[in-house]
Design a protein around this nucleic acid. Structure first.
Length: 272
DNA sequence: TGTCAGGTCCTCA
DNA sequence: TGAGGACCTGAC
């Protein structure tokens, strides 16, 4: 299916660090696993050619996943109007979008991500999917969907340890244990949603912020990791502590703080 | 061989 | 209340 996506760069978005399962193929296309299907995407200018294991509602699914219904031009103009000094950075990110990923998958992925590297995070997630996710045959190859709560509810610490998640095994057990009792995050304010997620062992402010940003479309969170800390201290001359950085982001970027942090990553990559 | 990785928890002062 | 060490393990 051919879909017009406009001025975005699929490869840069999928490999920007928030998606752990996309794979680049020899022909330049990218295969990725969404919550209910496998997709293979090849970009040609403002169009993408999508092959999928499931064609139901495919255009809508792609639009949602790449956040194509949101008016980024409007947001960018608003950000630049308030902060003229970030125009150059935003100009490097006009082809970037925040992915809308499955919230359950984001919770588990970002619990695994703490104090970890991307390669190892991907390995653990792929192992988890292979063992407990639904098998899908696509292009004569086996793929595995991310497991559902029901597939994981009886797993033990030892089961997780076998996936190479290390000390995060007990965090995953605690998450699955508390998951059915969690309040509906979509009905909560961002502050309440952060606090609700942080009731789970192994979810601190950074992981909770990432979950809200990539799993719940909340652009007003600011996931501050060591990298963002360095960037903010170097570029904005702020004190090197989370509270100062948080205050600065809130005052300057407001409801789009999370998006601006992603722009910081993305522009830095584009400058390299 | 040692350090580090897109943090969080726990202990102790 | 906050500073600092411990934590799995594979990549570099």
């Amino acid at each position: 299916m051919k879909i017009e996506v406009g001025n975005i760069n699929i490869e840069e978005i999928l490999f920007s660090g928030s998606c752990f399962r996309a794979v680049k193929e020899d022909d330049g296309s990218i295969t990725n696993i969404l919550s209910d299907r496998v997709v293979n995407i090849k970009q040609n200018g403002i169009y993408i050619e999508v092959l999928s294991s499931n064609n139901d509602n495919l255009e809508h699914v792609i639009y949602e996943y790449f956040d194509l219904n949101r008016d980024y031009n409007k947001i960018n103009n608003e950000l630049i109007r308030k902060n003229k000094d970030i125009k150059d950075m935003i100009d490097l990110c006009l082809n970037y979008r925040i992915l809308n990923q499955d919230s359950f998958e984001m919770c588990i992925s970002y619990i695994i991500s703490q104090n970890n590297n991307v390669k190892r995070i991907s390995n653990s997630i792929n192992l988890l999917c292979e063992k407990y996710g639904k098998e899908i045959l696509f292009n004569n190859k086996k793929y595995y969907l991310f497991p559902k709560y029901e597939n994981l509810k009886n797993l033990t610490i030892e089961d997780y340890r076998k996936l190479g998640v290390g000390f995060r095994d007990k965090y995953l057990v605690d998450f699955i244990d508390k998951y059915p009792k969690l309040k509906d995050i979509n009905t909560l304010s961002t502050i309440d949603a952060l606090n609700e997620l942080m009731k789970i062992k192994g979810i601190g402010l950074k992981v909770a912020s990432c979950i809200l940003l990539f799993g719940y479309k909340r652009l007003d969170v600011f996931p501050i990791d060591t990298w963002v800390k360095h960037y903010m201290v170097d570029n904005y001359n702020i004190k090197n502590d989370i509270k100062s950085i948080e205050r600065f982001a809130k005052e300057n970027f407001g409801e789009y703080s999370g998006l601006v942090i992603q722009y910081m990553f993305h522009s830095k990559r584009n400058l390299k």
